[in-house]
Nucleic acid binder design. Structure first.
Lengths: 182, 182
DNA sequence: ACAGCCATGTAACTCGTTACATGATTAC
DNA sequence: GTAATCATGTAACGAGTTACATGGCTGT
C-alpha cells in the first residue's frame, strides 16, 4: 500500500496538517493565500476531488458540522505525509514563465512592446510581493524555532526573496534596453 | 480565425522561428537545452502532436529530407506569432517548487532531513546554473543589439540570475538552521 | 429584495505524461 | 554484430481546467 499520490494531494494534506480542520471551501482559500506562491492552487472542483481521494485512502476524516463538512488529518494521514517526506527526491523546481517566453521572441515583438511588457511584469512582481508580505506578517508570533509556523515562515521568506530578485532582474533588463534606444 | 493555441504550441513555434528548419527530434533537443529553463520541455510524443497541430493550422511547412521530416515556420506562422505576442496579458510566472513545498512541512520531517534536502537542492541549482551557462556561452558572437540571439541571450541571463538567487537563498536558509542546532 | 459570499459537487474537455511499437543509421 | 543514437508515431491514462448546476446564509 501507500502508493504515491499526486503531489497536489500531498500539498493539500500538508496544508490541512498545519492547522484546524477546514472545509473544502476554506482549504481553497488557504491554498489561494499561501500555496500558490510555490505550487499551483488547484481549482475549486479539484480541491473537492482531492479531498475525496484523501478520504478514500483514509488520510483525512470528515466532520459534518451543519451544512458544511470539515476535514481533519488522521493518524494515517500524518504517517503517510512523513513517509512521503522521507522518501525520494523532491526534484528541481519547474518554472512556467510566460514573460521570459515572450522575451525570447523580443525581436518579433519590437523593443517598445518588450519594454511595456517588462514594466507591467515589474509592477506585478511588486504587487505579488506585497500580498506575500501580508501572509508573512500574519505568521509572526508563531514563527520562532520550535513554534508551529516556523517552517511556513521560512517558505514565505523564500518567496519574498524570489520576488525581490524578479523585480531586480526586470529593472536591470529595462536599463539595458533603454541604453539602446535610438 | 486564429484562435489561441496552447502556450506550448507557441513556445515550439517560437523555437522554430529562431533558426533553421528542425526535425521533431531536433526540436525536442532544442527544447531540452533551452526552453526547459523557463517553460516545460514537452515529452517527445507531444512535440510530434504539437507539430501536427501547427501543420494543421498552416503555421509550419514540412520538408521531407530522406527519412527525416523537418519543419519550417510559414509566413502565416510568423504572423500568428506576432499576433499572439501583441495580444493580451502574458500572466505571472507559475512556480512548482517541490523543495519549498516540503520545507513547509519541515516540522514533520525533522531539522536534519530538511538540511540534507537543502544541501542537495543547492548542489542541483549550481549544476543547473552550469548547464545554462554553457547555453549562454554558445550564443556569444550573435548576442549584440540587433543580432539574432540578442533576446535569447537576455532570457538566458534572466535564468542565470534566477539560479544564482536560488543558490543564495538556500545558503542563507542553511546558515539560519545551523544556528539552532543543539 | 437583492447581491455577494459560503458551500458542494458533476460533466466535458484539454494538456501532457508514460508505455508501447517500430525501424534506420552510426560508431565501436 | 551490437549498442547507442536518430527518428516517428499510437494508445492509454491521469491531472487539472472550465462550465454548469444547485442552494443556503448574510448584509444592506
Amino acid at each position: 500500500m501507500s502508493q504515491d499520490l499526486p503531489m497536489t494531494s500531498y500539498a493539500l494534506l500538508g496544508l490541512l496538517s498545519l492547522g484546524d480542520p477546514l472545509s473544502g471551501y476554506e482549504l481553497k482559500q488557504r491554498a489561494d493565500r499561501t500555496l500558490r506562491y510555490y505550487w499551483t492552487s488547484p481549482a475549486m472542483s479539484q480541491v473537492y476531488s482531492e479531498l475525496a481521494r484523501l478520504h478514500r485512502h483514509g488520510l483525512v476524516r470528515k466532520h459534518g458540522r451543519g451544512r458544511t463538512t470539515t476535514y481533519e488529518v488522521t493518524a494515517e494521514g500524518s504517517a503517510e505525509l512523513q513517509r512521503w517526506l522521507a522518501a525520494g527526491e523532491p526534484g528541481f523546481p519547474v518554472l512556467k514563465h510566460p514573460v521570459a517566453l515572450r522575451l525570447m521572441l523580443g525581436a518579433l515583438a519590437g523593443r517598445e512592446a518588450v519594454e511595456a511588457m517588462l514594466h507591467e511584469h515589474h509592477a506585478a512582481a511588486i504587487a505579488e510581493r506585497e500580498s506575500l508580505e501580508e501572509v508573512r506578517g500574519s505568521l509572526r508570533g508563531n514563527d520562532q524555532p520550535g513554534q508551529p509556523f516556523r517552517y511556513p515562515a521560512l517558505v514565505a521568506e523564500w518567496g519574498l526573496a524570489y520576488l525581490d530578485n524578479e523585480a531586480r532582474i526586470v529593472t536591470d533588463l529595462l536599463a539595458r534596453l533603454e541604453e539602446e534606444r535610438p
